[in-house]
């Protein structure tokens, strides 16, 4: 029962190999999820009751259930239906990778939609009225006035969402994939040195978290460059 630094050094390169998959999952789900979120938030502010209600229910369900359960419903659950097994979708849905991308994207979309909605609500009404006074059309007001400010207001919360997605990707180790956590778990199964290996994995995650925070910090500076003088 001692902490062997040598073991950390030995396992770090292997764990870093798993990082590729973690980053792939993170970036892909983030892109798809954010695109979906924009759609959802447009539904939420559309003023059409059916769309608003659908988007609300969607967000409520995906924010109200654990991501693990969402992942399992898609990965383990969808195989229950013959229609899905026989369809062309099965090429993707039998792969844990695409199941994970689907589950994470749907999950991120729900959280990000709420964040963006908060950002849009935070935009001063006066700016909107000024836009109208200047004769801008609805979509112009949204694109040139509301959206840039809403993005700036949403960025800090969006950064937290990216970090929580990064942490969520560790769940793929439960569906037979070798991301950072998956690789760490196989090494632990061989060496039974949980402290050394899992702590090494945690260090890798902390470095990624730090990078994300720096990136968001830079983006905040960029989008808020007119706020500071």
């Amino acid at each position: 029962m001692s902490f062997e630094l040598a073991l950390v050094w030995e396992s770090l390169p292997k764990i870093v190999e798993g990082m590729g998959l973690t980053i792939e999952l993170l970036v892909l789900s983030l892109v798809v999820g954010t695109a979906l979120a924009v759609g959802l938030v447009l539904m939420r502010i559309s003023g059409i009751a059916v769309l608003e209600w659908t988007a609300f229910v969607y967000t409520y369900i995906f924010r109200g259930t654990p991501m693990l359960v969402q992942l399992f419903i898609i990965y383990h659950g969808l195989a229950q239906f013959e229609a899905i097994r026989d369809s062309f979708l099965w090429v993707f849905l039998r792969e844990p990778f695409w199941c994970a991308i689907l589950a994470f994207s749907l999950n991120v979309a729900a959280y990000t939609a709420e964040i963006l909605r908060g950002g849009i609500q935070g935009v001063d009404r006066g700016l909107h009225e000024a836009g109208r006074a200047l004769g801008l059309k609805t979509h112009q007001r949204f694109l040139y006035i509301t959206a840039p400010i809403a993005i700036r207001l949403s960025l800090p919360a969006y950064g937290n969402e990216i970090i929580s997605l990064l942490k969520g990707t560790a769940l793929v180790s439960l569906i037979t994939m070798y991301d950072i956590t998956g690789v760490a778990r196989t090494i632990v199964a061989k060496t039974f040195a949980p402290y050394e290996i899992f702590v090494s994995a945690a260090i890798v995650y902390l470095c990624l978290t730090w990078l994300i925070q720096r990136g968001i910090g830079l983006a905040e500076r960029r989008f808020g460059r007119y706020v500071r003088r």
């Binding site: 029962m1 970090i163 990064l166 942490k167 969520g168 990707t169 560790a170 769940l171 180790s173 439960l174 956590t181 760490a184 778990r185 632990v188 039974f192 040195a193 949980p194 402290y195 899992f198 702590v199 994995a201 945690a202 995650y205 902390l206 978290t209 730090w210």
Partner: peptide
Amino acid sequence: TVLRGTPELLVLLIVYFGSAVTLTG
């Protein structure tokens, strides 16, 4: 900083398997 930047699953594994190794030792 550490607990907010580490995946929940990993924290769980460290606490459970880590404590088991320590206690067994």
